[in-house]
């Protein structure tokens, strides 16, 4: 299942991002395949959101290349483009870790804003619209149809005329995804879409993402801590730690990768790493990846949505330095 290298939608090469003296991302390269869900995981502060901000143009990377290829062969070098042009031309859409909806506008309006560029052209850059051109009326009706489609898809049709700020948390997350989809993207970047969702909601989210991938032929790039989501739906996982890639592979490969487990659990190598690791264990218990001597084993099965057996803890801890081929 290595098809993400053959015809990638997105190629990130030697991406480096420094803030002053701090290197948030160091020489990161990975590919995201077409019609695939690529998950970007890693402990807090690993630089995942920074990668997103570079891809979507909110940050200009210090070094490196981010190349997006549409199926029709058009290529875009994202690191050279402004953020809004990336959405407009290269067709990358994103959501945010702390939801950024237009909370004083209704759900429908939120989705209409997302179709701004299409509508703007149809309204003859406002001039036609002001005189009520029929062309604009038709375009507007089409846009509303599209909003209806996506509202239905995320189960929010009933609340179309309510203010976005009135929605419960989980619904806001779904609405943000619907809004991103209304920009007609090729690549959808989701920053922790399952954060704060209850198990039923995250199950629904899984279905929604799979449907976006399969029914709309989309590539999805996903930052997520919820391992049930990551392991359940990703085709490809890239693991980051301290801004560097430590593993890259299918979910099964990642689960067995000692470097990943080391990053998540921490090993007594140097003081710093232990400190970071021990903080992480608590998170991991919640997230279901925790495999630690002190943690009761019943947390383990959550990891394996796949039939593969969970990793033996002891071996990992004993052989911290072992590096496997999973790292490229």
């Amino acid at each position: 299942m290595m098809n993400w290298t053959k015809d990638p939608e997105l190629q990130v090469q030697h991406l480096t991002m420094r803030f002053g003296g701090l290197t948030a991302i160091g020489d990161l390269s990975f590919d995201a395949g077409r019609k695939q869900i690529t998950a970007l995981i890693g402990p807090n502060g690993a630089g995942k959101t920074t990668v997103f901000n570079c891809i979507t143009g909110f940050y200009k990377p210090t070094e490196g290349m981010i190349k997006l290829r549409h199926p029709d062969g058009k290529e875009f070098l994202l690191e050279r483009m402004d953020d809004f042009i990336i959405t407009q031309k290269a067709k990358v859409a994103r959501t945010f870790q702390n939801i950024r909806l237009f909370s004083g506008m209704t759900l429908l309006e939120n989705l209409m804003v997302a179709q701004h560029n299409t509508l703007m052209r149809a309204s003859g850059f406002t001039i036609g619209g002001i005189f009520g051109s029929g062309h604009f009326k038709r375009a507007e009706n089409e846009a509303i149809e599209k909003c209806k489609y996506w509202l239905n898809k995320v189960n929010l049709t009933e609340r179309a005329d309510d203010a976005a700020g009135d929605l419960p948390y989980g619904a806001q997350r779904r609405l943000e995804i619907a809004r991103a989809m209304c920009t007609n993207p090729r690549l959808l970047c989701l920053d922790e879409p399952a954060a704060g969702l209850n198990p039923r909601e995250s199950d629904e989210l899984n279905k929604l993402l799979l449907s976006i991938r399969d029914d709309h032929n989309m590539a999805i790039l996903l930052i997520e801590h919820d391992m049930s989501v990551v392991m359940g739906i990703s085709d490809h996982i890239v693991v980051l730690d301290y801004g560097r890639k430590i593993a890259d592979g299918t979910p099964n490969e990642i689960k067995n990768d000692p470097a990943v487990i080391r990053a998540y659990l921490g090993v007594e190598e140097d003081e710093n790493e232990v400190a970071v690791g021990s903080v992480k264990v608590a998170d991991l218990v919640n997230e279901g990846l925790a495999v630690h001597a002190n943690v009761p084993t019943r947390t383990v099965p959550k990891v394996s949505a796949s039939p593969k057996k969970p990793v033996a803890t002891k071996t990992v801890v004993k052989k911290p330095a072992a590096k496997k081929g999973g790292r490229k």
Binding site: F58, F84, I85, L101, F102, M112, H116, M120, G129, I130
Partner: peptide, 28 residues
Amino acid sequence: RLRRLPIGRAWEALREDEIACRSLGINT
């Protein structure tokens, strides 16, 4: 009238959240 056109909606969206606007391809 402008409020009901995309430009007006973009103004209001800008007031609500500029970063979200840019992420939706709006030239702020």
